[in-house]
Simulated scan of single mutants.
Amino acid sequence: MPKPHGFTYEQRGEHCVAITHQGRAAATLRGNRAAAFLSEVASGDPQLVMARWTGSYKFGNERTAKNHPRNRR
């Protein structure tokens, strides 16, 4: 799976985090969710964490789509 890229985040105030993807707003986290996000970003790969929190990652249906009769060669 290719590594996601283009995500950035900005902490706005004490209890708010804004996540952008290629300059466009992808998510805004507030309160406990913002705190959980910041602790997870500090301990892992920030790009993967932001992709997971915004929902911009593979959904798991790629394998079944590959085997669909329309996509076979």
Rank of each mutant, 00 (worst) to 15 (best):
M1N: 15
M1Q: 15
M1I: 14
P2F: 04
P2N: 15
K3G: 07
P4G: 08
H5E: 10
H5R: 11
H5G: 13
G6P: 14
G6E: 07
G6M: 15
G6T: 09
G6D: 08
F7P: 05
T8Q: 10
Y9A: 04
E10H: 11
Q11L: 01
Q11W: 00
Q11G: 01
Q11I: 07
Q11K: 06
G13T: 12
E14G: 14
E14F: 14
E14Y: 10
H15F: 04
H15V: 12
H15W: 09
C16K: 07
C16G: 02
V17R: 02
A18M: 15
A18G: 04
A18H: 14
A18V: 13
A18K: 14
I19R: 05
I19V: 13
T20I: 03
T20A: 02
H21A: 00
H21Q: 12
Q22C: 09
Q22D: 09
G23C: 06
G23K: 12
R24Q: 03
R24T: 03
A25R: 11
A25K: 11
A26Y: 07
A26K: 10
A26L: 04
A27P: 10
A27Q: 06
T28W: 06
L29N: 10
L29A: 13
G31L: 00
G31K: 08
N32Y: 13
N32V: 08
N32M: 04
R33N: 07
A34K: 01
A34G: 05
A34F: 06
A34W: 12
A35D: 00
A35L: 03
A35I: 00
A36Q: 07
L38E: 01
L38R: 12
L38V: 00
S39L: 05
S39N: 10
S39G: 09
E40G: 11
E40C: 11
E40L: 12
E40I: 03
V41Y: 01
S43K: 05
G44Q: 09
G44N: 10
D45C: 04
P46H: 07
P46I: 05
L48M: 12
L48A: 15
V49P: 06
M50S: 04
A51W: 15
R52C: 11
R52Q: 11
R52H: 10
W53Y: 10
W53M: 09
W53A: 08
T54D: 07
T54Q: 05
T54L: 08
G55N: 15
S56N: 12
S56A: 15
S56C: 12
S56G: 09
Y57K: 14
Y57L: 15
K58L: 11
K58M: 08
F59W: 09
G60R: 15
G60Q: 11
N61T: 13
N61I: 15
N61H: 14
E62L: 09
E62C: 11
R63L: 03
N67D: 09
N67W: 13
H68R: 05
H68W: 03
H68S: 07
P69Y: 00
P69Q: 01
P69S: 02
N71K: 03
N71G: 02
N71W: 01
N71F: 04
R72N: 00
R72F: 01
R72Y: 01
R72G: 02
R72M: 03
R72L: 04
R73K: 08
R73D: 05
R73Q: 07
R73S: 02
